[in-house]
């Protein structure tokens, strides 16, 4: 059960990143592009994983697709191709040969993260505010850049895994930093973000998990 919570924490972190990568409703936060209900968001990412005590980090690049209420596709192109899919059914890793391996088996609880993403996209921060202290710095007079800092509650599941999350953006989230206990941190840069209408292209749609109908 502990692992389940741990995985959930990580999923939450990943979801939050992607959620922040998505545009928000204009009503929720000024400066963020609203994402309609039948739209999805796609773009490129660069992930720099810094490990405390080592000068060289782990750098990867690729594409992401976020479908509100359905899941997140994280496709690494370099240095090694591979896909991670986060959805209601858990985390699925798909290697370059198409082999799938599941982490966090069969637990519909992972749907919570998709719900969180949807909440963010809908401008409903309450889902995050239940788990994070949210400090939002709106755009200034001379800039469109806003910043949000999410600090997990001390007693939340994610609190043991994430120290805090800082995101900045304009129309879209541009950068996210996940600070972790022990001094490690991940820097994620999102670029070339665009919204598009559903349905997804078939190759992408096939990657997404199907929600457990039971």
């Amino acid at each position: 059960m502990t692992l389940a919570r741990f995985v959930r924490s990580l999923l939450l972190a990943g979801s939050v990143i992607c959620a922040l990568g998505a545009p928000e409703t204009a009503l929720a936060r000024p400066g963020i592009v609203a994402l309609e209900k039948n739209q999805y968001l796609h773009g490129d990412f660069t992930l720099n994983r810094h490990l405390n005590g080592f000068s060289d980090g782990l750098k990867s690049q690729g594409e992401f697709v976020l479908v509100p209420a359905t899941g997140l596709i994280w496709q690494t192109k370099t240095p090694f191709p591979g896909t991670t899919v986060l959805g209601p059914g858990g985390i699925v890793n798909i290697d370059a040969n198409g082999e799938r391996s599941q982490l966090g088996t069969g637990a519909a609880q992972f749907g919570i993260f998709v719900d969180l993403i949807s909440s963010v996209l809908a401008g409903n921060w309450s889902a995050l505010e239940n788990r994070f202290h949210v400090e939002f710095s709106p755009p200034g007079d001379n800039t469109d850049i806003w910043q949000v800092k999410l600090t997990p509650f001390g007693e939340s599941a994610i609190g043991g895994q994430i120290t805090d999350i800082v995101a900045i953006g304009d129309d879209f989230v541009q950068q996210v930093r996940l600070n972790k206990p022990g001094g490690d941190f991940d820097d994620i840069t999102l670029s070339a973000q665009q919204t598009a209408n559903l349905p997804l292209p078939k190759d992408k749609a096939d990657l997404l998990p199907k929600a457990d109908p039971k």
């Binding site: 972190a13 490990l51 990867s60 591979g82 991670t84 370059a96």
Partner: peptide, 17 residues
Amino acid sequence: QRTVQNLYSPASTVNAR
């Protein structure tokens, strides 16, 4: 392969230790 993929996964459990 899984290890390598996990190194670059957004939901990775990898840390320095």
